[in-house]
Write a protein that binds this DNA or RNA. Structure first.
Lengths: 335, 335
DNA sequence: CTCACTAGTTGGAACGATTCACTCGGTCGA
DNA sequence: TCGACCGAGTGAATCGTTCCAACTAGTGAG
């Protein structure tokens, strides 16, 4: 409660508040003797500077805000980790927010970051947040979009070629003999889902007799995967797809649980592929074929683009597009 | 850049800044007409209040900081999620920090939260942070400790009875016929690890011929689990343990990967148990026996205890201890 | 008609750190 | 010896919001 402040430190050290401030922020402007004295007093009083006052005066907050789609998804924790590491090197704290794929949450965090006047925002968007992002930019906050190239001429971005990923999976599944492919994921409005589906469709169109069906899971978690596949298995046996492509690994894991419990052979009766290549996909009951994205690297690169945008807000926007890589495992290739 | 502020809003609405502030913070003090007028102008100018100034004046920050041991561990994301939900209901943003089991990181975040004058801190501690937590408390920041009852008379806490958890696992393994048990996890300095090991040892001591060996993995992630078990398997076959108890599920998953690759039968040759019961443990190659902790509920309860501490800093500290529950799966019980 | 009261509004003083222009000795070169 | 210069330190203003005490105009009771 007895919060010491600069003037207490100054008084006890026998100098002016301005000198204390200099000792803290511009040590070279202060003589070695005074510096030592001031530091000793700070130590003694347990002085901790008040960030609010500091920021008010400075007019800006060095921190960076980040909004991810799902904090429980290892893919996003990896991306966040990459970003955090790079930002830490730049001396910028990272404030992490989880939109949980809800637009309302997303807007709440954006407002919070706006009020905090953070230096920058990294966001994997759910809804149509472009207007809000423009506002942020007007307010001097730089923005980098993760996982989407929307607003291409306004904001820098990092993304992975999701159509390509969808194509890779479809190509592999078709090569393994699949003709009826069910793509599951959702909500269908999510760009990632749309693009992966689109890539799948494109590849399917090039081979006669291949059909693609989309089942909306509503969300991208294990439970949603379970429910959707549960419904799928209720169909007559001869209407089952030969392959299920889950648009992320959590959904795939949920699917796998249901398939296993129902005694369906994977890949014998139904093949299964996922997306993101989270560490758990490789150690699943049946190791799951998945599409690898360089998650940590994406986070790091997003932070780097943000750094550049902060340093020169007028500079041209940049887009880094990573290429996905197919990791074939047991769930699609019989031994 | 052209950041509107209260006085701009006031000028355009034809009122004083004080009235704008009232409209924003105490709407009932303002006439309906003025309120509407002010809101319209705010909308028009895209005014966003400056949190730094607000906090400076208020002398405190409503936000709550949280420091977890490992943001990539689903167990902690669940705890964080529970806390976030409850705090959101209280209108308090949650700032999430990841210590990654590094004391240095931990202190960095604590300093940050101190400088920000957050209302409270939730922490799963790595190192000996009690002195720093006392400082925070002196500065008026309430603290709740997660996963440990240390400083029992100073800070409220939520925790799970880890000795009990260790006991449960050992009891089960011994019942399944194991006599040589290897406990793996680390660093050994981590309280969770020590307690789970201790509980195991206690139970082992009650049955003749049971030996417990501890292998320090250094960290609690998949890679560390892999390395440790790799080393373990290099021993002559007859020195292998009959059961491996990993002090968390990530380590267990790493262990399982190595065992599978080496063609060791689980549970036939070696039984395997984990801890935390993360969703992925149940869907592993061989579903892993694990100890369930009510993660979300713990987060929620921690947030609740923090709420109480913030409201009445002088109130007696409280400790909520949850009981662990053993989830038996294939990895320890032959079919 | 006056006075007490209320609802609505306002000016100006905080909050705590930083910064800028300035002072004060002392040193050095010519 | 004088002026220019330099390092070290300082006083006062400032950032944007909120809060307090004070003010005004209107209302109703006596």
């Amino acid at each position: 409660m007895a919060m010491a402040q600069v003037r207490d430190v100054a008084a006890l050290a026998g100098v002016s508040p301005a000198t204390v401030s200099n000792a803290l922020n511009h040590p070279h402007r202060v003589s070695a003797r005074t510096l030592a004295k001031v530091q000793a007093v700070i130590e003694e009083l347990g002085y901790v500077r008040n960030d609010a006052a500091r920021q008010l005066r400075a007019g800006s907050n060095p921190a960076v805000g980040m909004i991810v789609l799902d904090a429980a998804n290892p893919y996003f924790t990896d991306v966040a980790h990459g970003a955090e590491q790079h930002l830490a090197e730049l001396g910028r704290p990272l404030l992490l927010g989880n939109s949980a794929q809800r637009e309302e949450q997303e807007l709440t965090y954006l407002r919070l970051f706006d009020e905090q006047r953070v230096a920058g925002v990294l966001i994997a968007p759910v809804g149509d947040v472009l207007p809000k992002l423009r506002t942020l930019k007007d307010h001097g906050t730089s923005v980098v979009i993760i996982d989407r190239k929307a607003g291409a001429d306004e904001f820098s971005s990092v993304s992975v070629n999701d159509e390509q990923g969808g194509w890779l999976v479809a190509d592999h599944l078709i090569g393994q003999g699949a003709r009826r492919i069910a793509v599951i994921g959702g909500p269908g409005s999510l760009r990632q889902v749309r693009h992966r589906l689109h890539g799948t469709q494109q590849r399917a169109d090039r081979t006669d007799g291949v059909t693609v069906e989309f089942l909306d899971t509503g969300a991208m978690d294990i439970a949603s995967g379970r429910e959707t596949v549960q419904r799928l298995l209720e169909r007559p046996r001869d209407e089952w797809p030969e392959a299920i492509f889950a648009t992320n690994d959590l959904v795939a894991l949920g699917a796998l649980q249901v398939l296993a419990r129902a005694g369906v052979e994977v890949p014998g009766e139904i093949m299964l592929a996922g997306y993101d290549d989270i560490e758990f996909a490789a150690s699943a009951t049946i190791p799951i074929t998945s599409v690898r994205q360089p998650s940590e690297e994406m986070g790091r690169q997003a932070a780097e683009l943000l750094r550049q945008a902060i340093e020169d807000p007028a500079a041209a926007v940049q887009h880094t597009v990573f290429q996905p890589e197919l990791m074939v495992r047991e769930s699609t290739s019989a031994r």
